[in-house]
């Protein structure tokens, strides 16, 4: 049983237990949890994703506005399909909603990116996978505003950090979303939480086997692929506890990561005892 208590705790603060989660969430499949993927599209015909993509829309520019239209364009780059396949491996019954903002309009078109996020928030998808980011200073304020709206609407936005010398938005808005960077671990349940860091969560992101274009599979490395691991975990939590708010989810992730850390320390101590006994 994992107790989800006060998110920030130190020797001066009193620890309040908000709720308790038992291990049963690890056996769930993410059934009925709606996950939006704002990316390059998803190949719904990929064997790893058959029947899982419930809706696909693509951003189209209409004069000065960006509108979303139903689309069967699939994936233009492979990346959205890769992200969906990672989530699906952890939460095989999650429902995917593809919001394609990359691939046709080119770079620098932050407008499609913003519009895609706004679209997902309006639809109130429970989880929004954002394996994208921008360092354009002019997008800071509108993205911040949208992230606050997502938080208020109960949408859980999970964003990938970039591993570049510049911070990227929105992953640095740690208060209203869940930000993830990669590590070289392999077990998606054994994720880490770095309280006090700008990018708080760490998850597998090195040499990850993913679905790719033309029904193939690839091995990919990047923070983009750590982000969907956490999305998968959240889908399991939301199936088990549908009423969780973004704040609850973050606290739960923190509590689970603490347990993971304690287990690692214990394993290391046991290992050391075994070695001492042997010698």
């Amino acid at each position: 049983m994992t107790e989800v208590s006060a998110y920030e705790s130190n020797e001066y603060s009193s620890i309040t237990t908000y709720f308790q989660i038992d291990e049963s969430w690890k056996l769930r499949t993410g059934k009925g949890v709606e996950v939006a993927i704002i990316d390059s599209g998803i190949d719904a015909d990929h064997p790893a994703l058959l029947g899982k993509v419930k809706e696909s829309v693509v951003a189209r520019r209409q004069e000065k506005k960006v509108v979303f239209e139903p689309s069967d364009d699939g994936d233009s780059a492979g990346h959205g399909t890769a992200c969906a396949s990672i989530i699906s491996r952890i939460a095989p019954d999650a429902e995917f909603y593809s919001i394609k903002v990359l691939g046709s309009g080119g770079s620098g078109d932050g407008q499609a990116f913003l519009a895609g996020l706004e679209y997902a928030i309006k639809k109130r998808y429970r989880i929004i996978n954002l394996s994208l980011g921008t360092t354009r200073p002019q997008l800071f304020a509108p993205l911040h505003d949208l992230l606050d709206r997502a938080y208020q609407a109960g949408c859980i936005v999970v964003a990938a950090a970039n591993n570049l010398p510049h911070p990227s938005f929105p992953s640095v808005f740690s208060s209203s979303l869940i930000s993830v960077s990669k590590d070289d671990s392999t077990d998606p349940f054994d994720f880490g939480f770095r309280y006090g860091e700008v990018i708080e969560l760490t998850a597998p992101g090195v040499n990850i086997k993913t679905a790719w274009l033309n029904k193939s599979y690839k091995q990919l490395t990047g923070n983009s692929f750590a982000c969907p691991h956490i999305v998968g975990i959240i889908a399991l939590l939301l199936e088990t506890y549908p009423g969780l708010t973004p704040f609850h989810v973050k606290s739960a992730l923190y509590a689970i990561a603490e347990e993971n850390q304690k287990a690692k320390v214990k394993d290391a101590a046991d290992q050391s005892d075994d070695n001492n006994e042997t010698s």
Partner: peptide, 16 residues
Amino acid sequence: SSGQPMVIADAGEEDS
């Protein structure tokens, strides 16, 4: 277009 760096271990035929 995404601004995200990535590594692909086995690029090739499937990528048109």
